[in-house]
């Protein structure tokens, strides 16, 4: 691989562009491929196979050839509501798991850049904050404030937009009350039951990093269930 290609790969990765690396295993030539375009030179006759690898988000060697395809897809978006202590540990865990995190918190003293360096922190109420984030059914929501004023609008937005994972922090009692409010707001049982509450798998820990670990474990597990 040429240094130039490596630099291009890193640039594409940091700008969250989807691409593939094509490598000719016989002569070592490698090339960056963007979905929807025609592969260049020696790779051109494998256009269909390369596109198929891309669609199935797989890496591998094209059958009866010496061409290796490695696809890079966009990281999964995770939106955290509440720039609280647990969120700081979630950010740490997510770094090595390739989730792209955004944090929403209208409370300025929580949502500071100093507490969350290099993370997109939106210091607004959820309704306005969601206007700044592109979301779809491959987005996850982690609600951590257990304050209905902040969490509820975010949960409602996530339910309406069919996020694949929605979790909310709070005791069983807090969650019961939350479910009741959502029912009153017109959400059906299926929707309400899709929320993971109390959030996280049962680990038994009570400290901020332990709760963060239980949340991240549940998030990863739900990601691969889909």
């Amino acid at each position: 691989m040429k240094i130039k290609t490596l630099e291009e790969i890193l640039k594409k990765k940091s700008s969250k562009t989807e691409f593939a690396i094509l490598t000719n295993l016989e002569n070592g030539d490698s090339e960056i491929y963007l979905p929807g375009t025609s592969p260049k030179g020696e790779f051109s006759k494998y256009a269909d196979e390369i596109e198929n690898f891309f669609k199935s988000k797989k890496n591998g060697v094209i059958e009866n050839s010496e061409i290796f395809v490695e696809t890079y897809i966009k990281p999964i978006k995770v939106i955290i509501v509440g720039a609280v202590h647990i969120a700081q540990y979630l950010v740490d865990f997510a770094k090595s798991l390739n989730f792209e995190i955004s944090i929403i918190d209208p409370r300025g003293y929580f949502a500071s850049e100093q507490r969350f360096p290099e993370i997109k922190v939106i210091n607004k109420w959820p309704k306005e904050a969601f206007e700044e984030i592109e979301t779809n059914s491959s987005t996850a929501l982690i609600a951590l404030t257990h304050d209905p004023k902040i969490d509820d609008p975010a949960l409602q937005y996530a339910l309406k937009n069919k996020f694949y994972y929605i979790g909310a922090l709070g005791s069983k009692k807090t969650h019961e009350n939350r479910c009741q409010r959502l029912a009153e707001a017109g959400f059906n049982n299926n929707e309400i039951n899709s929320i993971h509450g109390p959030i996280g798998i049962k680990l038994g820990g009570k400290s901020a990093p332990e709760i963060a670990l239980s949340i991240i474990a549940q998030l990863v597990s739900e990601t691969y269930k889909k």
Partner: peptide
Amino acid sequence: MKNSFDEKILDEAKDWIK
């Protein structure tokens, strides 16, 4: 759903070359 795994090895390669 598949998450893209990325262990930052290529980033590290760049640092080593530098």
